[in-house]
């Protein structure tokens, strides 16, 4: 695998930024009155967002789900706009209408984050259809969890995407848990990628904690899509290191299982590899970490200092 140095650095950088972003929210969401609503974090799953998005070009589209922060940051969303939206402030990327769960950033071609499990798939099919219809040289990536693959919409979407050979990459971020259900408790199918065969599309299994492997698989899937060879189902095997949301005590996740996966954390895995191969040195790694830290701190400061929207702004943006 011959991945350009810049791409490898980019993946490490977006993973570090995502982790700092999540870590700050772990603390902030526990402060009474600070952040409204739920808090769903992607800690430990960063390689999926970073690996996939590194394989994309600006014109490519992502459609994402409730666990979206790492996808959006990797696609290039402005951390300040995201953080302010998570704080539900007027300066947020959606003016406080979406909050943390539905962050929408059309300016980086992330036009839909939906929390209805399984809903990303039919929408991604529509977005990819538009790319095919207008003969745009671009693809749509659809992120979803293993739980979403049990929804009817998964099957309708994969069937239609394969039938019409749409330029879409279905990225199943299999983090082993759907709510409180472990993977084996919600399906008998050992690998989610296996379901691709039912729709006559390639089903690829990737180590979801290995950013370069995710990148490589996404790059190949993207090329197939651009070549008119239709969709790919890519199963990225990873782990939900935190609860479904931050209020979740994770009593059903064995402690040693969590610890074992924390040891497989994708960030040191890539940074050690890049240091060993001389692509970065440890000073540069430290530099990345402190830069990410200051970007996140600045985003939090911006969010905290921003005003809430005026109550009557609730009435705006329903219709064009």
């Amino acid at each position: 695998m011959n991945i350009p140095r810049k791409k490898q650095q980019e993946m490490l950088w977006t993973m570090i930024l995502s982790r700092k972003f999540s870590d700050s929210l772990v603390e902030l969401c526990r402060i009474e009155g600070k952040i409204p609503g739920m808090m769903i974090l992607s800690t430990g799953q960063e390689a999926v967002g970073s690996g996939v998005c590194a394989a994309l070009k600006q014109d490519d589209v992502i459609i994402t789900n409730h666990r979206s922060h790492h996808h959006l940051l990797a696609k290039g969303a402005d951390p300040k706009g995201l953080m302010a939206e998570i704080f539900c402030k007027k300066t947020g990327c959606n003016k406080g209408k979406s909050g943390t769960l539905h962050l929408t950033v059309p300016e980086v071609n992330a036009p839909c984050t939906t929390t209805v499990v399984g809903a990303t798939l039919p929408i991604a099919v529509g977005r990819a259809f538009a790319q095919q219809y207008t003969q745009e040289q671009a693809v749509t990536v659809c992120f979803f969890g293993d739980g979403a693959a049990d929804e009817g919409s998964f099957h309708e979407a994969l069937n239609l995407a394969a039938l019409w050979q749409l330029p879409v990459i279905f990225v199943c971020e299999n983090n082993l848990y759907a709510g409180a259900q472990r993977y084996e408790e919600h399906t008998r199918v050992k690998d989610m990628a296996e379901r691709a065969r039912a729709y006559d599309m390639p089903g690829i299994i990737v180590d979801g904690n290995d950013a370069p492997a995710v990148y490589q698989a996404a790059l190949e899937a993207r090329q197939r899509a651009l070549d008119g060879q239709g969709p790919t189902l890519m199963e990225c095997k990873t782990y939900r290191c935190r609860g479904h949301g931050e209020q979740d005590p994770q009593h059903y996740q064995p402690r040693d299982e969590i610890r074992a996966w924390q040891e497989k954390c994708p960030i040191p895995r890539l940074s050690n590899m890049l240091i060993a191969s001389g692509i970065i040195n440890s000073a540069e790694l430290q530099e990345m970490e402190s830069m990410a830290e200051s970007i996140v701190q600045e985003a939090v400061r911006f969010a905290e200092e921003s005003p809430y929207p005026e109550p009557r702004e609730a009435l705006e943006d329903v219709y064009v």
Binding site: P111, L121, P122, R127, F129, A130, T134, E156, N159, L163
Partner: peptide, 28 residues
């Protein structure tokens, strides 16, 4: 057949097709 699309019996996919395509600026 490029503009008159017969679909499978998949109402969620039909409606999702409209949502995604409309976001891109098409008029489904």
């Amino acid at each position: 057949p490029g503009r008159v699309k017969d679909t499978p019996v998949s109402e969620a996919a039909i409606a999702g097709l409209a949502v995604g395509a409309a976001e891109a600026g098409l008029k489904p």
